[in-house]
Nucleic acid binder design. Structure first.
Length: 307
DNA sequence: TATCCAAGGTAAGTT
DNA sequence: AACTTACCTTGGATA
């Protein structure tokens, strides 16, 4: 086992592990104390978070188990390999958060949302598991979306031994494609079960690959992702933002739609595409997705109210 | 204890 | 293109 420390004062801007991992962007980490989403920020302050990372083409690593916690201005990690490049990639430690904040529009709601979680960063999760996670997210609460991904890994993921324990990787496209709809319904995926199975099959047979969207222009990339079963414009935006690095993507979920109605009514253009363009312009094209995620998390946790 | 309701939406069918 | 409706499941609210 390797261990190490990342000194957070070396980063450009702050970092808040709990806010980043529990803000509803990623469902692939698990908290060792089983306290995910318990709605008490004090409890998760220094908890260990664990995940099994698949080979990442942008980092060039093999599969790895990573554990990390935040204590006194530093990130402590334990891993089957050097976790620094992996954590830097997954948690976007390479973002200049100070510059991003400066670039966000000076709107009261945006400012208050950022100040509620000033160290929250976006994530850069693996494409396939992000695709599956957000297919599962339809009409679901964050705690249950997380539970579904943990269940998928437990039932269908390869076991990985680390530090005397058995972890489970996220299932491969082939494995999920071979699962039956009934298998997936047993994990309480409900009507999402056939969506996940069909999408896994599309990836497994090379009919399409979510990573291919990375090379496209933003709106083309969103359109491309909607070919996967269970993926509409909102889920496509989530994959673009939380996995493929499109920081301008603004997933129009129920929270953001409410915020638009309450605070930016002129941006409500009816359809998804037109409203998306309007709110992106309002939040600033370059980091609109960062603003969206601050708004989403702060609204959902009641850190900023209506008005 | 029973019933109701909404949760990070999407697909399929109509107008 | 914009507008309905059905869809699984479950924890929490209400009666």
């Amino acid at each position: 086992m390797e261990r190490g420390v990342i000194t957070l004062s070396d980063l450009d801007g702050r970092f808040d592990l709990q806010a980043t991992v529990e803000s509803g962007q990623t469902y692939l980490w698990d908290r060792a104390d089983d306290g995910m989403y318990d709605d008490d920020p004090a409890l998760g302050g220094s908890a260990w978070y664990e995940t099994v990372v698949p080979p990442l083409e942008t980092v060039g690593n093999a599969r790895a188990v990573v554990r990390v916690r935040q204590v006194d201005g530093r990130l402590e990690w334990e891993s089957s390999t050097d976790a620094v490049p992996i954590l830097t990639h997954l948690l976007r430690l390479d973002d200049n958060l100070d510059a991003i904040r400066s670039a966000l529009p000076d709107l009261p709601l945006v400012r208050r949302s950022f100040d509620a979680y000033p160290g929250m960063r976006l994530v850069r999760d693996p494409p396939f598991s992000t695709l599956v996670s957000f297919i599962c997210s339809a009409q679901m609460r964050v705690a249950r979306i997380h539970g579904m991904q943990i269940g998928l890994a437990r039932e269908f993921g390869d076991p990985v031994a680390f530090d005397g324990r058995t972890y489970h990787a996220f299932p491969t496209p082939d494995t999920l494609a071979d699962a039956t709809e009934a298998d997936l319904r047993d994990l309480s995926l409900g009507y999402r079960a056939p969506y996940v199975r069909r999408t896994a099959e599309m990836v497994a047979t090379n009919e399409a690959d979510p990573a291919d969207a990375r090379r496209m222009d933003y709106e083309d990339a969103r359109e491309y992702l909607t070919r996967f079963v269970g993926v509409g414009e909102k889920v496509a935006d989530c994959v673009l933002l939380f996995s493929l690095g499109f920081l301008e993507a603004v997933p129009l979920d129920t929270w953001i739609r409410t915020a638009i109605a309450d605070h930016f009514p002129d941006c409500d253009c009816g359809g998804y595409e037109a409203t998306s363009r309007a709110i992106r312009a309002r939040l600033g094209e370059s980091y609109a997705g960062y603003a969206q995620t601050y708004l989403f998390f702060a609204l959902r946790t009641g850190r900023v109210g209506e008005e």
